[in-house]
C-alpha cells in the first residue's frame, strides 16, 4: 500500500477538523475526495504534506508502510509526496525555472540532469500544458492569473514526478479549456506506479480524470465510498442528501 491513513484526528487553531479519517491508496490508483466547503479538505491535504499549522491529535499516516508523522515537509517531498495548492504562494525574485531545478535536484539526487537537459524537460512539459515558455523565467506565481498558477502546479507535478500527488481544489477557478489542459496534465502524470488523490468540491474534473474511487467527505470523516456513480449522485442531489 502506498498511503494508509488510520483514524486521523487533526486540530487547527484549537478546533478539531478531522475526526477519525481512514483512507487507503494503492499504487496506480486514482482517488477522489469530494466534500462541501469547510469540511476540512484542505486540512487533509496539508496534513498529509505535513504543514505544521495542523496538529495531529490521534491516528497515523503511513507512506509505503512507514509512519511519516515525524517527517518535516521537505522530507516528505523527498519521500515522494506532492501537494498541489488551492492558492499557490508568490515568491518574488525567485524564477520558476531555477526553483524547479533546485527542487528536482533535491528530490531526485540520483538523477544528475545538466541545466540544458533540465531545460529541455521543463520546456517539453510547459508545451504540453500550453504554458507560455516565458513563464519559466518569471518569478514563482508573481503576476500569474488563477489559471496560470494551477497550470504551474501541474507542471511542477509532472517535472518532480512524485509517487503520490495530492491535488487540492486544482479545478477551482478554471475555465473549460484550462480544466481540460489541467486534467490532461494529471492523466499524463498518472501511471501504474504512482497514485493520485484529487480533493474537490465539484464533479467536473472527475469527468475528465475518471478516478477509481470516490469518497464523500463530511464533518471530518469519510462517510461514503464508491465509484463514479457517487459523484453523479452528489452532483444531482447535493451534499445535503447525505446528511443523516
Amino acid at each position: 500500500m502506498l498511503l494508509e491513513i488510520r483514524n486521523l484526528h487533526v486540530e487547527v487553531e484549537g478546533k478539531e477538523v478531522l475526526k477519525g479519517l481512514n483512507l487507503n491508496i494503492n499504487p496506480g490508483e486514482t482517488h477522489a475526495i469530494m466534500g462541501p466547503n469547510g469540511a476540512g479538505k484542505t486540512t487533509l491535504a496539508s496534513t498529509i504534506m505535513g504543514n505544521p499549522k495542523y496538529m495531529i491529535t490521534d491516528g497515523d499516516i503511513l507512506f509505503e508502510g512507514k509512519s511519516i508523522l515525524e517527517m518535516t515537509v521537505d522530507e516528505r517531498a523527498k519521500f515522494g509526496i506532492f501537494q498541489s495548492f488551492q492558492y499557490p504562494e508568490e515568491i518574488p525574485g525567485v524564477k520558476l525555472r531555477n526553483f524547479l531545478k533546485l527542487a528536482y535536484d533535491t528530490v531526485h539526487p540520483d538523477k544528475k540532469l545538466s541545466v540544458f537537459d533540465f531545460g529541455d524537460l521543463i520546456v517539453k512539459q510547459a508545451d504540453k500544458l500550453k504554458i507560455d515558455r516565458s513563464f519559466l523565467d518569471r518569478y514563482i506565481n508573481v503576476g500569474f492569473s488563477g489559471g496560470e498558477r494551477k497550470k504551474s502546479e501541474i507542471l511542477q507535478l509532472n517535472v518532480l514526478n512524485p509517487k503520490l500527488a495530492v491535488l487540492d481544489e486544482t479545478d477551482s477557478g478554471l475555465d473549460i479549456d484550462a480544466l481540460k489542459i489541467v486534467s490532461d496534465g494529471i492523466k499524463n502524470f498518472a501511471n501504474p506506479k504512482v497514485s493520485v488523490l484529487i480533493i474537490t468540491h465539484y464533479q467536473r474534473i472527475l469527468d475528465h480524470v475518471k478516478p477509481d474511487f470516490v469518497h464523500v467527505f463530511m464533518n471530518g470523516k469519510i462517510v461514503k465510498t464508491g465509484g463514479m456513480e457517487i459523484a453523479s449522485e452528489l452532483e444531482s442531489n447535493g451534499y445535503e442528501s447525505l446528511t443523516v
Binding site: K53, T72, V73, D74, K78, P92, G93, T106, Y139
Partner: peptide
C-alpha cells in the same frame, strides 16, 4: 511551507526567499 513542500529544506527556503527579495 510552499517551498518545503517541493522538497527544499527550511534553511534553503529562507535563503531562497531572502535572495528573491534582494534579486531585483
Amino acid at each position: 511551507y510552499y517551498l518545503m513542500s517541493r522538497g527544499i529544506s527550511e534553511g534553503d527556503a529562507k535563503a531562497l526567499i531572502v535572495r528573491g527579495f534582494m534579486e531585483p
